[in-house]
Amino acid sequence: MYTPPAFREDDPAILRQMIREVRLATLVTATAEGLLATPLPLYLDETEGPHGVLYGHVAKANPQWRLQPLAEALVIFSGPDAYVTPSWYASKQEHGKVVPTWNYAAVHAYGAVEFFEDETRLREAVTRLTDLHEQPRAEPWSVADAPDAFVRAQLKGIVGMRLPITRLEGKRKMSQNRPMADREGVAAGLGASALDKDRQVATMIPTDSN
């Protein structure tokens, strides 16, 4: 990922938080048959290894798990993003030398991916992933709520995924390269948007007020 110094994020705590906030990542592997990519919900186990380990699962019918990767796998965590119009820049009124851009946050995680079919490990991965997303609900659903025979049958249709992270790349492109007046204009413009994602990006832009 191309990351100019102004947009580079190296703080491990922030990178892990960015990973946790992304609900759907993309697993990319390079194989002899070409690039393969699968959107996956994943969870990060921070207790394993120096950078943590990612867990998830793919459908057994998905060919990605059967094809040997030629190098490390890449997992892409795409955070909030928003289009930025030059009309929000104060500098547009000064000299007009402005162009549109896009603000966004992303983390790339690399590592050797492992796929597994062991039922015990699969059940643990599915349970932890389910608990993670059910936790905010008033009455969380649990894997144990379903009949055991049904769960075991469902597990036969998936393959577990484990990826020990060897390195992380983080990027937060949030108008840091613009003058403060331009940043404030972008934050105000996005903050007035009808889109939730735009308003979320507005809060991430460094200004005098945040």
Rank of each mutant, 00 (worst) to 15 (best):
G111A: 08
A37F: 09
R66V: 02
V107Y: 05
T101A: 13
V151L: 02
V126L: 13
V113K: 01
P100R: 04
A144R: 03
A59F: 06
A71P: 01
T130F: 05
V99N: 07
E114A: 07
K60E: 10
A112P: 08
S87M: 07
Q135A: 06
Q135I: 03
S87I: 08
T47P: 05
Q68N: 01
A90V: 04
P140K: 03
L132V: 02
V143L: 05
L36Y: 12
V75N: 09
V75W: 05
T85M: 07
L42Q: 08
W88E: 03
L40R: 10
A30W: 10
P50N: 07
L44H: 12
E117L: 06
L40Q: 15
T31W: 14
W141D: 01
A146H: 06
Q93F: 03
E114K: 14
A149F: 07
V75P: 07
S87K: 05
L44G: 08
H108A: 05
R152L: 13
A59S: 13
P80D: 07
R66A: 11
A146V: 01
A61H: 04
V151D: 02
P41V: 13
E134V: 11
E134Q: 01
F116R: 01
A149R: 04
A138Y: 00
R121I: 00
A30V: 15
H133C: 01
V143K: 06
P41R: 15
T31L: 12
F115P: 09
T127K: 04
L42A: 07
P63S: 15
Y110Q: 11
V99D: 07
V75D: 11
V84F: 03
A73P: 12
Y89H: 07
V107C: 09
F150I: 03
H57C: 03
P80T: 05
W102I: 09
T127G: 02
D148R: 15
S91W: 01
P63A: 12
H108V: 10
V84G: 04
D131N: 14
L67I: 06
A105P: 08
V99Q: 01
E48D: 10
A112M: 10
V151Q: 06
A73V: 10
R123F: 11
A82K: 02
P39R: 08
T130C: 04
E124K: 13
T47N: 04
S78L: 14
T29R: 15
F116E: 10
H57R: 11
I76N: 11
E48M: 15
N62Q: 01
G111D: 10
N103T: 14
L54N: 00
A106Q: 13
H95D: 12
G111H: 07
T47K: 11
R137Y: 14
V126R: 05
P147Y: 00
T31A: 09
L40D: 12
A37L: 08
R152V: 06
T120G: 15
G34T: 10
H57Y: 12
